[in-house]
């Protein structure tokens, strides 16, 4: 058994799990945060994307034990003080979700994408390419791409206003 301790959405949590326990199972079953989903077995669909130490990773392709000592953020931890993250707000505004199942991974991947490229620096083709590891069956991606672009541009505006 592995004793696992991490900061999850700003709170220190710990638990004892089998060594084979995946990080996604620790988050969903041990910690009861069911916003992170599992949609495939081959690390391709991206429904489980979360941030570990500030980087997007697939929680289904990491052991909970590997995440010991890390800082983890899931979709539940994205909104601050009841205010939606601009990416969350943009997904709603642009109808970037239908059944909602891929949405957690999409939003977490989008936040990471915007951070890596810099707000305001994403174009349509880049976003599509960056979504290679996130599969959606409902939306045909068009509104997801629009939402990410809009959020990226809005975040650039917010940064500018703050400067």
């Amino acid at each position: 058994m592995a004793h696992v301790s991490m900061v999850l959405n700003g709170k220190r949590v710990s638990g004892t799990v089998e060594d084979r326990t995946l990080l996604v199972a620790f988050i969903r079953e041990n910690q009861g945060l069911t916003g992170t989903h599992v949609g495939c077995d081959t690390s391709q669909c991206g429904a489980c994307v979360i941030h570990v130490d500030g980087k997007a990773v697939k929680a289904c392709t990491m052991l909970a034990a590997q995440a010991d000592g890390t800082e983890v953020v899931t979709l539940e931890g994205l909104a601050k003080g009841g205010t939606l993250h601009p990416v969350q707000a943009a997904f709603r505004e642009h109808h970037g979700l239908q059944c909602g199942f891929c949405t957690p991974g999409m939003i977490m991947a989008a936040v990471d994408m915007i951070e890596r490229h810099g707000a305001g620096n994403l174009d349509e083709a880049t976003i599509r390419h960056e979504l290679e590891g996130n599969i959606c069956r409902c939306t045909g991606y068009q509104n997801i791409v629009k939402a990410i672009k809009a959020a990226s541009d809005e975040m650039a505006g917010l940064q500018q206003a703050a400067e």
């Binding site: 979709l75 969350q88 709603r92 199942f101 949405t103």
Partner: peptide, 19 residues
């Protein structure tokens, strides 16, 4: 109209069978 159901999905509060 933007969707009433979206709030729970974009904040990780959807309730699917496996949840």
């Amino acid at each position: 109209a933007v969707r009433k159901e979206d709030k729970r999905f974009i904040t990780g509060k959807g309730r699917y069978t496996d949840d």
